[in-house]
Design a binder for these strands. Structure first.
Lengths: 100, 100
DNA sequence: TATAAATATGAATTTGTATTCATATGTAAT
DNA sequence: ATTACATATGAATACAAATTCATATTTATA
């Protein structure tokens, strides 16, 4: 039963969370993400590939661009649970507040 | 907004998922987990500490034992989302099936 | 068909995280 | 107070995952 840890592992990374946050607003090409997040193109591409492998994002071709969009059906409720968790249980949560 | 990746990172580990799976059934002492999962005691303790820091588990003292229990309120719906995600989107999900 | 634009890929390196092992701390019983 | 039991901790190492950088692919346009 390791599917859970693989899924979590896929999101256990600040850049990927940034990407999620960006794609929450609207779908975007790689270059748009590169510019919005100010990160290396290959970094973004690698991250997107991993996320796509887990169906966290999907992609469509549009001219020479590839437009990535977020799987909101899975991800939005997931983030909501974490928001709720944090506000309810993590008043003292060092790990999540201080970055450890 | 890195709280998400810290939370995910906390669960991005097979042992911790095993612990969750065990605690889903019933609360357990460290030694019980050690025996049930067949892992080193310090390994279990380290894992539990990290999970406790994120309020994924909680602990109570009982004699010389410390009884850990799962934060079901957060974790169960979370796992449910992943189950649903997998059955819906991951027919071909290499990352989650082949362990990459 | 040669060039440019957009993105993807591979492999080496770096970085982060878990594991290990020895030991310390806490708790109760004798 | 000494011992045994249960768990926690720290630090070194091992391991896994992300970053980097150079280059390959893909798609469209001149």
């Amino acid at each position: 039963m390791n599917k859970y840890y693989l899924f979590f592992g896929n999101l256990a990374n600040p850049l990927r969370v940034e990407i999620i946050s960006a794609l929450k607003e609207k779908e975007m090409s790689v270059l748009e993400l590169v510019e919005k997040l100010g990160e290396e193109q290959s970094k973004i591409s690698h991250a997107l590939k991993a996320m796509k492998n887990c169906s966290i994002v999907s992609v469509k071709q549009e001219g020479k661009k590839r437009i990535y969009s977020l799987n909101k059906e899975t991800i939005l409720p997931m983030l909501k649970i974490i928001d709720k968790h944090e506000s309810k249980f993590c008043e003292e949560c060092r790990a999540m507040k201080e970055g450890r």
